[in-house]
């Protein structure tokens, strides 16, 4: 029984399994190689920076989404929270807070960032309370939040854009545009942020009890609870973290465009889900990896930018994107079946 499975019935199956497991990575290489040949200028440095900026926006949200989905939930509100937080960022840069006594409080860049992030976390907290305390299904709770946050974003300006977010040197917010547009050591600041967030997330997932509890909660909530996992806290964390990610994206977009528009972030939640699923996250919970999600985000990003560069119509782009996502899940199912079969033959052999 303790023998290894070196003499497994067929080495081919093991190879196939390995290939299927690494499918997102294989897809990335395929997509990348294809466009390197097919699209002119695809391999330029400028293009690489551009693509990675596009990918980063989605990757932040997708990381938050991955944690949420691993617990067996979903967060549909992130796109709207991006809109809301970018509007709040815009409002704070332009107006500060006006308590109504004829004077106003102005903030520097760091203070604005902290306040915006707090709003994102707070929205996530409300999602978490709805889900863990009031027993609203995650789909419904965050769907409600999708509408509420979008509505709040529109109400802030009556639907108008906050333009010219250049900040002011007087108040210390002149560095606001650097969040999305600045660079450090030749690499955009937002990419540095993504690297830090990714490393921290991988660390949380792999090397902390919290990460283990996230997987356990999604794998079997009742079992996890009976093992002493504080399931409610775990869920609160993932929704608050997802809110934080949305706030970061809101800040980045407002800073990049030097403007905040209330419609920012529409359908971002769907792209985030797509990246997570493409990266091998199971919608039923318990399974998924941060690095898989990052690769998934790159596949989607490279696919859409590459298709644009090739001049493929945006209508076709949507069709292709949809096909890729569905194919990924079909392969995912095939892999689970194959894996179950291999496990059974191992069991019978032992």
């Amino acid at each position: 029984m303790t023998t290894t499975t070196a003499h497994s019935p067929s080495a081919n199956i093991n190879w196939l399994l390995l290939l299927l497991k690494a499918r997102t990575f294989v897809a990335l290489i395929l997509v990348f190689t294809y466009f390197a040949f097919a699209a002119p200028n695809f391999l330029s440095v400028a293009n690489a920076v551009l693509i990675s900026k596009h990918v980063a926006i989605n990757a932040f949200l997708a990381i938050g989404m991955t944690f949420v989905i691993i617990t067996g939930g979903i967060d549909l509100s992130v796109g709207s929270v991006v809109g809301l937080t970018s509007m709040i960022a815009g409002y704070l840069v332009l107006n500060g807070i006006d308590p109504g006594f004829g004077w106003s409080i102005q903030f520097n860049t760091v203070e604005i960032m902290v306040m915006v992030c707090f709003v994102g976390v707070f929205v996530g907290w409300i999602n978490g309370i709805l889900i863990t305390r009031l027993n609203v299904a995650p789909f419904i709770a965050t769907l409600g939040m999708l509408y509420m946050a979008r509505g709040a974003a529109l109400l802030m300006s009556g639907g108008r854009t906050f333009p010219n977010l250049n900040g002011s040197a007087e108040y210390g917010s002149a560095s606001f545009p650097l969040i999305g547009a600045g660079s450090f050591l030749g690499i955009p600041v937002m990419i540095w942020m993504l690297i830090i967030v990714t490393l921290a997330s991988v660390y949380i997932a792999r090397r902390t009890p919290l990460g283990r509890h996230i997987y356990a909660t999604g794998g079997n909530e009742r079992g996890a609870a009976l093992s002493g996992v504080r399931v409610r806290r775990v869920k609160m964390f993932v929704y608050m973290f997802s809110g934080l990610m949305a706030a970061l994206v809101g800040l980045i977009i407002a800073s990049q465009l030097k403007a905040a528009h209330p419609a920012t972030g529409e359908f971002f939640e769907l792209n985030a889900i797509a990246a997570a699923v493409l990266g091998g996250t199971s919608m039923s919970g318990g399974r998924g990896r941060i690095m898989g999600t990052i690769i998934g985000a790159f596949v989607i990003g490279i696919l859409s930018d590459g298709l644009i560069m090739m001049g493929v119509s945006s209508f076709w782009q949507m069709v292709i994107k949809g096909l890729v996502i569905v194919t990924a899940v079909v392969i995912d199912q095939a892999q689970s079946r194959l894996q179950a079969r291999v496990a059974l033959t191992q069991e019978a052999g032992s």
Binding site: H213, A216, N220, G228, G286
Partner: peptide, 21 residues
Amino acid sequence: KVDGLIQMMAIRENLTLSSLK
């Protein structure tokens, strides 16, 4: 199946789940 173990997790992860502290 339902209460005792997290079936999809590794044997190691199941054993230590209650005592990660």
